[in-house]
Simulated assay, not measured.
Amino acid sequence: MIVTPRYTIIEDGAINKIEEILKKLNLKNPLVITGKNTKKYCRFFYDIVYYDEILNNLEIELKKYTAYDCVIGIGGGRSIDTGKYLAYKLGIPFISVPTTASNDGIASPIVSIRQPSFMVDAPIAIIADTEIIKKSPRRLLSAGMGDIVSNITAVLDWKLAYKEKGEKYSESSAIFSKTIAKELISYVLNSDLSEYHNKLVKALVGSGIAIAIANSSRPASGSEHLFSHALDKLKEEYNLNINSLHGEQCGIGTIMMSYLHEKENKKLSGLHEKIKMSLKKVDAPTTAKELGFDEDIIIEALTMAHKIRNRWTILRDGLSREEARKLAEETGVI
Rank of each mutant, 00 (worst) to 15 (best):
E167W: 07
P109M: 03
L55V: 14
K199W: 03
V97N: 03
S191V: 03
F118A: 02
R78Y: 12
V201G: 10
G208H: 08
K202Q: 14
T4W: 01
A284C: 15
H246L: 08
D192A: 01
A87H: 09
F227K: 06
V71K: 01
L31M: 01
Y162D: 07
Y259I: 00
L268G: 06
A128S: 11
R43D: 14
S221N: 08
K289L: 13
H197F: 11
H261T: 11
I297Q: 00
L189T: 04
L226H: 15
A67I: 04
I126D: 11
N16S: 15
T100Q: 12
D81C: 09
E273S: 13
Y51C: 10
Y88P: 00
G83K: 07
V149Q: 13
Y51K: 01
L27M: 10
P5A: 06
A210V: 01
Y196C: 09
F94P: 00
A87K: 04
I54S: 09
N198Q: 10
Y187A: 12
I33K: 07
Y65I: 10
A14P: 09
G13N: 11
L315H: 00
G144Y: 08
G76S: 12
I334A: 04
K326S: 15
A301C: 04
A328R: 01
T287E: 10
A107V: 10
D69T: 00
S177M: 10
D294H: 06
K266V: 14
L25P: 02
G270S: 13
A128Y: 01
S320R: 04
S320M: 04
Y41S: 07
I54Q: 09
L22A: 06
G332V: 07
S194Q: 12
G270A: 11
P5D: 05
G332D: 11
C42A: 14
S228C: 13
S96Q: 06
S136G: 00
L86Q: 06
N190M: 01
R43K: 15
P98D: 04
V201I: 13
S221V: 05
P137I: 06
T82Y: 05
L193F: 05
G75H: 01
D47H: 03
I255V: 14
I74Q: 00
V201T: 15
L189K: 14
Q249V: 01
K182L: 15
V3Q: 15
R139A: 10
E167V: 13
G270C: 07
N29C: 10
N239L: 08
L27K: 14
E264G: 05
F293R: 00
R139M: 10
